[in-house]
Simulated scan of single mutants.
Amino acid sequence: MLQYEFETVDCDNASGYSLFGGVGLETTRHREIICRRAAEGWRYAGSIPRSQRAGGFIETVDLVFEREAAPEE
C-alpha cells in the first residue's frame, strides 16, 4: 500500500522577466522540497493547483509525494 503526503508551495514568491515584455514568473522552491523529500525516502508523484486567481495565475500548488507504507502487523 502507498502512503501519500502533500506539501504546499507558494508561487507568490516567484520572480523573473519575460522576453515578451512584463514580468515572467519562475519558482525555485519546489526543487529544494523535491530533493529534501527524496532524501527522506519519498518519491515525487505530481502537483495539483491549490489556489488560483481569476486571471489564471496559480498562487499555490500542492506537491504530491508517495512511498511504500510500513507493513501492518
Rank of each mutant, 00 (worst) to 15 (best):
A38K: 14
I34P: 01
S15H: 13
S18C: 11
R31M: 05
T27K: 14
E26T: 14
L19Q: 14
R36N: 02
T27S: 12
E32H: 08
A38P: 01
F20V: 09
I34F: 03
R37Y: 04
G24F: 02
H30C: 01
A39H: 10
G21V: 09
L19M: 11
I33M: 05
A14Y: 05
E40T: 07
G16V: 09
V23Y: 06
A14K: 11
H30G: 02
Y44A: 02
G46C: 02
Y44H: 09
G16A: 09
W42N: 08
E40K: 12
S18P: 01
S15Y: 10
I33C: 02
R37P: 00
A39Q: 15
A45D: 11
H30N: 09
T27C: 07
G24Y: 03
S18L: 09
A45K: 14
R43Y: 00
Y17L: 12
A45G: 08
E32V: 07
G41F: 00
W42E: 05
R29F: 02
F20Q: 13
I34T: 15
I33D: 02
G24C: 02
T28D: 08
A39R: 15
A38V: 12
R31V: 10
W42R: 10
N13G: 10
G22E: 05
C35E: 14
C35D: 14
S18Q: 11
I34A: 07
S15C: 06
E40M: 10
H30Q: 14
G41K: 03
A39S: 13
R37K: 15
R37A: 10
G16N: 09
L25K: 15
T28Y: 08
R36Y: 00
I34H: 09
R37L: 01
T28V: 15
E40Y: 01
E26G: 04
L19N: 13
R43P: 00
C35W: 05
R37Q: 09
G16I: 10
R36W: 00
E32G: 09
A39P: 00
S18M: 07
R29I: 06
R36I: 00
R31I: 13
Y44T: 04
T27A: 12
F20L: 13
A14T: 13
G22S: 07
E32K: 12
R31G: 05
L25P: 00
I33Q: 05
A14L: 04
H30A: 06
S18K: 14
G16H: 09
Y44N: 04
G21W: 06
S15G: 11
S15N: 10
T27Y: 06
Y17I: 15
R37N: 04
Y44Q: 05
E40D: 12
A38G: 13
G46Q: 06
G16R: 11
G16Y: 04
G41P: 00
